[in-house]
């Protein structure tokens, strides 16, 4: 009884904060998604599900979904593979290994806004590092205005984002690697397994928990992708790098369709919820696996 009271007592402050700054705004945007509010006018009308119907026929929404899916797929592949490679290469390499680990991890300490700005310079068509290097090695024909060309803008932003996220994936995989018992890899070695065989059949299966964490973070971060897009392209040129979050911002704060923006937020919320539910299911399955 006393314990329950203390529990309530200690839970109250965070719960109160959570209710006011997370749940209340969430419910408020649900409410606004049913209106045609423009963001500051005291008068607005209830429009029922009109905003959601508009989502269904808005080509810009379909475009933002497509870009977010591309982002998610690449977010699942690029930082995870790069992070895994770095982790395997640098695990247990002493001082030099630690030095390189720090180097890979360093970008995580930067704000995405800073990362975006640095990569804007790298992608600059005239004096950016990328085009200058391409021109020097004789690939002049490959140089282009990376962020201004609709075909390359989204990919260029994802590459910049990957550069930062690799460090995070690497650290999680490194933590996962410490949980791989040495006996198992040694046993595999004694049995004559090559490095690749041991990697495929022993190490990678044991990295499953780490992999799930990396994947879940990748999915959640790709749904959140806004800041780096905002800084680097603003969703442009002409929506070619619009993600759902960026599109929601444009509709709400540039066009002042706050009602429609809220409806997009509700859809984004539903997708995130599904992703998180999937993640929790996987974690539960894992728990059973190790029980």
């Amino acid at each position: 009884m006393a314990r329950a009271r203390w529990t309530i007592l200690f839970l109250t402050p965070p719960l109160a904060i959570y209710l006011t700054i997370v749940l209340a705004p969430l419910l408020v945007s649900f409410y606004y998604s049913l209106t045609d509010w423009n963001g500051f006018n005291p008068n607005y009308n209830f429009v029922g599900l009109d905003n959601f119907l508009k989502i269904g026929r808005d080509p810009l929404f379909a475009n933002a979904i497509r870009n977010t899916v591309v982002w998610m797929i690449l977010a699942l592949l690029l930082p995870s593979l790069a992070g895994l490679t770095a982790a395997l290469a640098l695990n247990g390499r002493g001082t030099a290994g630690n030095f390189y680990k720090s180097l890979f991890y360093l970008p995580i300490c930067l704000s995405l806004v800073v990362v975006g700005q640095v990569w804007i310079w790298i992608y600059h068509p005239d004096w950016g590092l990328l085009n200058v290097v391409l021109a020097r090695v004789g690939l002049e024909s490959w140089t282009q205005a990376w962020l201004a060309t609709p075909e390359t803008a989204l990919l260029s932003v994802i590459v910049a984002w990957t550069w930062q996220q690799t460090g995070l994936a690497m650290v999680i995989f490194l933590a996962g690697l410490t949980a791989v018992p040495k006996e198992l890899t040694e046993a595999a070695e004694i049995d004559g397994a090559t490095y690749w065989q041991s990697l495929r059949s022993v190490v990678i299966p044991l990295l499953l928990p780490a992999t799930i964490v990396v994947m879940a973070l990748a999915i959640i971060n790709s749904l959140k992708s806004f800041d780096i897009v905002f800084v680097m392209t603003g969703g442009g040129p002409f929506h070619s790098s619009d993600t759902l979050a960026m599109f929601m911002y444009t509709e709400s704060f540039r066009k002042y369709y706050m009602g429609y923006g809220s409806a997009i937020a509700v859809v984004l919320f539903a997708i995130s919820l599904a992703a998180i539910a999937f993640y929790f299911r996987q974690v539960r399955t894992l728990d059973h696996l190790y029980d």
């Binding site: 442009g236 040129p237 002409f238 929506h239 066009k255 369709y257």
Partner: peptide, 17 residues
């Protein structure tokens, strides 16, 4: 008006591309 300007500015960028 701002929502129209958003659409028009987009068109100019498309046009320059």
């Amino acid at each position: 008006t701002p929502p129209m300007a958003e659409g028009g500015l987009n068109m100019f960028a498309q046009f320059m591309n």
